[in-house]
Amino acid sequence: MESGEKTEILVEDLSIGYGSNVLMEHLNFEVKSGEIFCIMGGSGCGKSTLLKHIIGLYLPLRGDILIEGESIVTADESRKRAIMRRFGVTYQGGALFGSMTVAENVALPLQEYTDLSRDEIAKRVEEKLKLVDLSGFGDYMPSELSGGMRKRAGLARAMALDPRLLFFDEPSAGLDPITSADLDRLILRMRERFGSTIVVVTHELDSVFTIADRVIMMDKKARTIVASGDPVELRDHCPNRLVRAFLTRDGLKREMRDVDVREVE
C-alpha cells in the first residue's frame, strides 16, 4: 500500500471458471499503480486462470475487470487489443516461439506495432536483452536456453513495448532457488527502472516476501479470496490460521490436509 494513489486494475465481483464449473466467485480487489501485487494460492485453485482473465484471454462468467477504468470484458475486439498492448506477460515456460531466435522473439512485438527501422529494432532488442542479463544470447534458439534463461528472454519480449503493466505467471516454477532469486531481483529492477505495475502469480514464499507489496490469498475450497494485504502483516497477524500457516511454511502440510478455511474463520 505504499505507492498506490491510482488504481490500475479493478476487479469487481468476478466469477471465473469453465462452463458450469465455477472455480472462483465474488472476487473483488484492486491493483494500484506502481505496486507489486502477488496472487497466491494452492495448486489448481485457479491463480493462472484468474491471471488470464485479467489479461483478457478468457471471458469471466460474471463481473467486470477494469484496466485503467476501461472494461476489458465488454470491450470490442479492436479496443481489447489496444488494451492488451499495454500488457507485458511472462508465461510459465517463457512461451518463446521455437521457430525464431531469441532476438527475433523479442523483436516480434516491435515489428508488429512500431514502424522502427531494422537497426532501431536491433538496438532495442539488444537493450532489452541486456536488461534481463541475456546480452549475447540473441542468436540462440529458445531450445538452446535453460529454463531460467527462457523466462528472462520471455520477460525481455514482454518488456519490448515498454508496457505499463507487467504480469508474471509462476516466474519461479521449475527453477532452482538461486535462479528464482535472480528472477525476483529482475522483477524489482523492472519496477525501479520503469515504475511498472506488476502482477505476479506465485506460490513461492521466498518470492512473495522479497517482492510483494500486497498479496491476495485464494483458496480452492472457499472458491474465493481468503485474505489480502501486506504479506508480512498477514503472516504475523492474519486471523485465519491457515493463511498464517501457508505463509510460514512450517506445519503447512499438516494444516492444509483437512482443515476447511471457513471453519477456521
Binding site: G56, L57, A82, M84, V89, A95
Partner: peptide, 17 residues
C-alpha cells in the same frame, strides 16, 4: 498444439497479435 500447451498462443494474443 505444442504452442498452445506452451502458452505461446496466449503470448501471441497478449502481444495483440
Amino acid at each position: 498444439g505444442t504452442m498452445k500447451v506452451d502458452e505461446e498462443i496466449s503470448a501471441l494474443a497478449t502481444m495483440g497479435i
